[in-house]
Design a protein around this nucleic acid. Structure first.
Length: 278
DNA sequence: GGCCAGGATTTAA
DNA sequence: TTAAATCATGGC
């Protein structure tokens, strides 16, 4: 086992996990077990540090996953001083939030499930997928299941996904799995600029602008993305006096305003609006 | 019991 | 090009 120890001023594990960017984590001991693809880490707070415990071979993976090479103080300062009251409040409450660098395909499947859905149910659905189709693994003597391979997902029927409770999203999931099995490599999109990347993602059946923004941000680390869901839509109307109707244009408006800080600021605001503000 | 949840597709205007 | 109607499901 390896331990990565990192000052917790700009790394709050609870806020980072609970701000809606990741669906696979469970409270454990003094912290959380965090899952990504077929890997697992134990994250907890100790004194003034956040500790990441993982297999020796996964140290580099999780260092990258938690975006530990980036200095979030600059991002926090930009949010604090940009002259927007709610953003100043939000970044203060969420200064320990980091944007995880998650696997693009896992994000694509996950956020395809997220549409018109709530976070607890999204998490339950993904957990079932892993339990039923994922490889069984062991971390620190404890059993868990990897995120399923697309090839395995492509072998199931639409009914299988409906019985898991995916509803009308079942056909989207199966269709995506088959497309991947047939050779689509979304990692190849990484060479595209963000606008083009989104255009490619939206071509996939069941992927609209909002899901494309989430995959772009959380799966490709394109921080010039600003996903607009119902909560952010509320922020836009209530706190920015927004008049634009279409969420796609709301997203463009924020990206134009916040540039490469868009994704970080969006997470501050989402977390604040959904979890903190009454 | 209608409304809401990290919306997208289809059809109509 | 934009506006409704429709789509499953569970929590409230």
């Amino acid at each position: 086992m390896k331990q990565i120890i990192f000052n917790s001023e700009f790394f709050n594990i609870k806020d980072t996990l609970e701000c809606g960017q990741i669906f696979r984590f469970t409270p454990h001991g003094n912290g959380y077990l965090v899952y990504s693809m077929d890997k697992c880490a134990y994250a907890f707070t100790k004194a003034n540090n956040t500790v990441i415990e993982c297999e020796d071979a996964d140290e580099e993976y999780f260092y990258h996953f938690f975006d530990l090479a980036r200095d979030y103080k600059n991002i926090y300062n930009d949010a604090k001083t940009c002259g927007v009251q709610i953003l100043s409040d939000a970044c203060e409450k969420g200064k320990g939030i980091r944007i995880l660098r998650q696997n693009a395909l896992e994000m694509l499947f996950s956020f395809m499930i997220s549409q018109n859905n709530n976070i607890p149910r999204i998490r339950a659905s993904i957990e079932k997928l892993c339990l039923l189709l994922g490889e069984k693994k062991i971390f620190n003597g404890q059993e868990y299941f990897a995120f399923p391979l697309a090839q395995k997902m492509a072998e199931q029927s639409v009914d299988f996904y409906r019985q898991i409770g995916l509803g009308y999203r079942a056909e989207y999931i199966l269709s995506l799995a088959k497309t991947i099995k047939d050779g689509l490599d979304i990692n190849s999109f990484n060479s595209l600029p963000t606008t083009q990347l989104k255009k490619e993602l939206v071509k996939i059946h069941g992927v609209g602008p909002k899901v494309a923004d989430c995959v772009s941000l959380f799966g490709f680390n394109r921080t010039d993305s600003f996903p607009v869901d119902t909560w952010i839509d509320k922020v836009y109307r209530q706190d920015f006096n927004g008049a634009e109707k279409s969420r796609e244009k709301v997203s463009e408006w924020f990206v134009d305003k916040f540039k490469n800080n868009s994704g970080y600021f969006q997470q501050y605001l989402f977390h604040y609006k959904r979890n903190l503000e009454l």
